[in-house]
């Protein structure tokens, strides 16, 4: 999996909860709903028409405590909509782990809110932590994922599914 992503930015505010990404009454109450179907309801309470306008490869920038709240996987619908990479001022621990496990490159990026406006294009390197605003020409650096850290290895495998598939095979837990 690559470490550099370039795309057009959608901007959200502070404390975007996973309840907004995966509404309980619309999605959680239907356990067999497909990720694509569930994605239609992503942010429907706070930004009703948004899910229909996202283009594959777009980036999402969030504010403080992005993904706060429930452990439901908010990165599932974001990835299904085609969001390529997420940056936020700060990110809830559970949401960040779900993002890694979903294989959606996600980075904590303090200062990102004032660094980019909606519609501008960013170039993001999740390993080095270098972020470039292609419209303003400015760059900033945040902490990237350390190459030897488990979350980086899981991201590079494409998510926990792929990481696990390899690991259970190596451990002899399948195909005996």
């Amino acid at each position: 999996m690559k470490t550099v992503y370039t795309g057009k930015v959608w901007k959200f505010g502070d404390k975007i909860s996973t309840d907004l990404m995966v509404p309980g009454a619309k999605v959680l109450a239907h356990p067999n709903m497909s990720p694509q179907e569930a994605a239609r309801f992503c942010m429907s309470a706070n930004r009703p028409d948004w899910a229909g306008t996202v283009q594959p490869g777009d980036l999402l920038v969030g504010g403080v405590n992005f993904g706060c709240g429930s452990s439901r996987n908010g990165s599932g619908p974001l990835k299904a909509l085609g969001i390529a990479c997420v940056l936020a001022e700060s990110i809830s621990r559970i949401h960040l782990r779900n993002a890694v496990n979903t294989g959606l490159p996600t980075l904590v990026a303090p200062g990102i809110t004032s660094f980019v406006e909606e519609g501008q294009r960013l170039r993001v390197d999740i390993a080095s932590g270098e972020v470039e605003n292609l419209d303003t020409g400015k760059t900033m650096r945040v902490q990237g994922w350390p190459a030897d850290s488990p979350p980086f290895q899981i991201l590079m495998a494409g998510g926990l599914d792929e990481f696990m598939r390899r690991k259970v095979r190596e451990a002899g837990l399948v195909g005996r």
Partner: peptide
Amino acid sequence: GGHLGVLGDGEVCISTSNRNFQGRMGSP
């Protein structure tokens, strides 16, 4: 906001639970 007491549009609830995010207990 799953079942057994989902809120409708414009309704107000006081709750001993833990979250009051928009749409949490039903209608946004």
